[in-house]
Design a protein around this nucleic acid. Structure first.
Length: 259
DNA sequence: ATGCCGAAGTTACTTCGA
């Protein structure tokens, strides 16, 4: 089966592009982030016409995650047990479902904004809650995969300028440790092929010609438990989807599994 | 060529993203 994760940066603004990509890439399961609409504003009918069942956890203007599946969607769970709040609200940043043989999470980890901002400790707490929530499935014998926009560059190689960004998020030791703690539950980073250049970035800012200049980051990840990792036959970042007018600022990460 | 930011809520400007 083919699974994918894509920060779509508005599901409704990207719908035609998404439908075209579903047709050509033909994934069985797609984890979406930043759908930027309420659950009842998800274009469910169009997605169902394309052959997918849909489970969404929407928030309105920001955030929002969803799972599309041709392999069934059962045991849907919205949010994380013990998920921290921000500004007194539990944001729509996680959804899990069982899609045929695979337990899958679609997660949108908080940005952090700035190391001095309240959003930064929120990000670290959120990753800690994710580790706790995913731990049982991660350690289990059934295939499981936590996919999404982690908003952390696992290493300096995952950032285009390969330089220190003093005081900026995404590259701090604390964030990397929090990500490592998620992986320590029994999950491994499925490292994808790049379709061009030497590193599989998944995000390029809209500004400053970052995409043409390949100033990217690798922050969208697929973390697979052992039972899932053993079935991986290929993985790549579909950077072609970052091209052209009306692209998301993220490209899809595609993982093929012998499941 | 991949091209100088884009989406959404609200209504001309603000917030957010990483």
């Amino acid at each position: 089966m083919r699974v994918a994760t894509w920060n779509i940066n508005s599901l409704n603004a990207r719908l035609e592009r998404l439908l075209a990509w579903l047709e050509t890439a033909a994934p069985d399961v797609v984890c979406l982030q930043e759908i930027k609409c309420a659950t009842d504003a998800v274009p469910t009918e169009r997605l169902e016409q394309a052959g997918y069942e849909v489970a969404a956890n929407g928030d309105g203007r920001w955030n929002g995650v969803a799972i599309l599946s041709k392999a069934g969607i059962d045991q849907v769970e919205r949010g994380l047990a013990g998920q921290p709040e921000f500004d007194g609200r539990t944001e729509a940043r996680a959804i899990a479902a069982t899609c045929g043989p695979l337990r899958v999470w679609s997660v949108y980890v908080p940005n952090g904004r700035d190391v001095t901002h309240d959003h930064y400790p929120y990000k670290l707490a959120w990753l800690s809650a994710l580790a706790d929530a995913a731990a049982p499935a991660a350690a289990g014998s059934e295939p499981a995969c936590v996919m999404g926009d982690f908003n952390v560059c696992p290493t300096d190689e995952d950032l285009w300028d390969r330089a220190e960004w003093p005081g900026t998020t995404h590259v701090t030791e604390a964030e990397r440790k929090a990500l490592a703690a998620v992986e320590a539950t029994g999950l491994s980073d499925v490292f994808p092929r790049a379709l061009k250049y030497d590193w599989p970035f998944t995000f390029w800012d809209y500004r400053n010609l970052d995409f043409p200049k390949n100033r990217g980051m690798r922050i969208d990840l697929a973390l697979a438990n052992a039972a899932c990792r053993d079935t991986v036959t290929d993985a790549y970042v579909d950077r072609n989807e970052r091209k052209g007018k009306g692209a998301s600022d993220h490209a899809p990460l595609v993982v093929d599994l012998d499941l």
